[in-house]
Measured scan of single mutants.
Amino acid sequence: KELVLALYDYQEKSPREVTMKKGDILTLLNSTNKDWWKVEVNGRQGFVPAAYVKKL
C-alpha cells in the first residue's frame, strides 16, 4: 500500500471528505483525480485535496 504525508491541516467540508492534521501519515487509496485523492485515516475513508499531501 502507498502512504502519503499530510503537509497541512484539512477540515472536512462534506461527508465524502476526511479531516487530517499536518504530519499525519495516511493510506493512499486512489490518486487518479489530480485534485482530490482518496485516503484512509483513523479507519475512515474519504477525499483530501491532492495539494495537501505528498507521497512517501
Rank of each mutant, 00 (worst) to 15 (best):
K1E: 12
K1Q: 13
K1C: 12
K1R: 13
K1G: 13
E2V: 13
E2W: 13
E2T: 12
E2R: 11
L3P: 04
L3G: 03
L3F: 14
V4A: 13
V4G: 14
V4Q: 01
V4R: 02
V4W: 09
L5N: 02
L5Y: 12
L5D: 01
L5Q: 12
L5G: 03
L5I: 15
L5T: 08
A6E: 00
A6P: 01
A6Y: 01
A6K: 01
A6M: 02
A6V: 11
L7A: 05
L7F: 04
L7G: 02
L7W: 04
L7V: 07
L7Y: 04
Y8L: 12
Y8S: 09
Y8V: 11
Y8K: 12
D9K: 03
D9I: 02
D9A: 07
D9L: 02
D9N: 09
Y10E: 01
Y10T: 01
Y10I: 01
Y10A: 01
Q11D: 14
Q11C: 10
Q11N: 14
Q11E: 15
Q11M: 15
E12I: 06
K13L: 10
K13V: 10
S14M: 08
S14Y: 07
S14C: 09
P15C: 09
P15K: 12
P15Y: 11
R16L: 15
R16G: 13
E17A: 05
E17Y: 06
V18I: 14
V18P: 01
T19N: 07
T19A: 08
T19K: 05
T19Q: 05
M20F: 11
M20V: 12
M20I: 15
K21I: 10
K21M: 10
K21W: 10
K22I: 07
K22W: 04
K22P: 04
G23K: 02
G23T: 02
G23R: 02
G23N: 08
G23S: 03
G23Y: 04
G23L: 03
G23D: 06
G23C: 08
D24M: 14
I25M: 07
I25S: 03
I25E: 04
L26D: 00
L26K: 00
T27F: 12
T27V: 14
T27D: 07
L28M: 03
L28C: 07
L28W: 01
L28P: 01
L29I: 15
L29E: 03
L29T: 05
L29Q: 04
L29C: 07
L29P: 00
N30I: 08
N30V: 09
N30L: 09
S31L: 05
T32S: 15
T32E: 14
T32N: 13
T32H: 13
T32V: 11
T32P: 04
T32K: 11
N33T: 07
N33W: 07
N33Q: 10
K34G: 11
D35T: 13
D35C: 10
D35Y: 15
D35H: 13
D35S: 12
D35W: 14
W36N: 02
W36E: 04
W36T: 02
W37H: 03
W37I: 06
W37F: 08
W37G: 00
W37A: 05
W37C: 04
W37V: 08
K38D: 04
K38T: 09
K38W: 15
V39T: 01
V39W: 00
E40C: 10
E40T: 06
E40S: 09
V41R: 14
V41Q: 12
V41Y: 10
V41M: 13
V41I: 15
V41D: 06
N42K: 10
N42A: 14
N42V: 08
N42S: 10
G43L: 05
G43K: 06
G43I: 03
R44T: 08
R44D: 04
R44I: 09
R44A: 07
Q45F: 08
Q45V: 15
Q45A: 12
Q45R: 12
Q45T: 14
G46H: 02
G46M: 05
G46E: 02
G46D: 01
G46P: 00
F47M: 10
F47E: 04
F47L: 09
V48K: 00
V48Q: 00
V48T: 02
V48L: 02
V48D: 00
P49Y: 03
P49T: 01
P49R: 03
A50Q: 07
A50T: 05
A50K: 05
A50E: 04
A50N: 03
A51S: 13
Y52R: 08
Y52G: 09
Y52L: 14
V53W: 01
V53S: 01
V53P: 00
K54T: 14
K54M: 14
K54I: 15
K54A: 13
K54V: 15
K54N: 07
K55M: 14
K55L: 15
K55H: 11
L56V: 14
L56A: 05
L56S: 04
L56K: 04
L56H: 06
